[in-house]
């Protein structure tokens, strides 16, 4: 039998392409890309109490967490230009991260145990972000105290911008850094999200 579609098969060709079929082809592409080392950035969206979170990972680990207010499409475009355009929706690589975040939001996890790819941060900002996990769950530090922790007590504003540009919020807990007067300061995911995370940890 000839496998090529003849006139009888025209109906098949005209038939709309089934979404489930495309989804299955997509999963096959994810597996093939991973196996061939072509999946430079894998991502998924995770629904959470602080809104939809974009999770992105390189082979080196989790590289970016983005809140909805950052614009997930914009964040992916920015990852395409700074890291690699070889980006696919491929949830498999984010299984462990998604699971740990779910546990965190259920108050079943206080410390994250994830491989992190910190390549999006450089210099002083990277140094500050690396030290932030030292602030324990449920605690807060002021921007000034963090400046002291990193050995540069006058760099309060620079600590502020290190927190504001943290590519891995929640997992790298910049939400635990607040102003000396007790007010929240800023947050990449919006002040509501910051308040919500601190509330969750205080309970």
């Amino acid at each position: 039998m000839d496998d090529r579609p003849g006139n009888d098969d025209l109906a098949t060709l005209r038939a709309p392409v089934d979404a489930a079929e495309l989804a299955s082809l997509h999963r096959r592409l994810e597996r093939a890309a991973q196996a061939d080392g072509l999946l430079d950035v894998a991502y998924r969206v995770l629904d959470s109490p602080v809104g939809d979170l974009l999770l992105a990972a390189t082979p080196g680990g989790l590289v970016r967490i983005a809140f909805a207010n950052e614009g997930h499409d914009e964040v992916l475009e920015s990852l395409a230009s700074t890291l690699s355009p070889r980006i696919l929706h491929a949830p498999g690589r984010l299984d462990v991260a998604a699971c740990e975040l779910d546990e965190y939001f259920e108050r079943r996890r206080q410390v994250f145990d994830l491989d992190l790819d910190r390549s999006l941060s450089k210099g002083f900002r990277a140094l500050v972000q690396r030290r932030l996990p030292e602030i324990a769950y449920g605690r807060t530090r002021t921007y000034g105290e963090v400046a002291e922790i990193v050995g540069n007590p006058r760099a309060v504003r620079a600590v502020g911008s290190a927190c504001a540009t943290n590519p891995l919020p929640i997992v790298v807990p910049c939400h635990r850094v607040v102003r000396a007067d007790g007010s929240l300061g800023g947050y990449i995911g919006g002040l509501d999200a910051k308040a919500r995370l601190l509330e969750l940890e205080a309970a």
Binding site: V17, L22, L25, Y43, L76, A80, P85, R86
Partner: peptide, 19 residues
């Protein structure tokens, strides 16, 4: 600026399958 490859798949998956 170059789109993430996922956007390429999304926009052209059906066309390529028809081809």
């Amino acid at each position: 600026m170059k789109q993430p490859f996922e956007a390429v798949v999304e926009h052209h998956a059906t066309t390529v399958l028809r081809v």
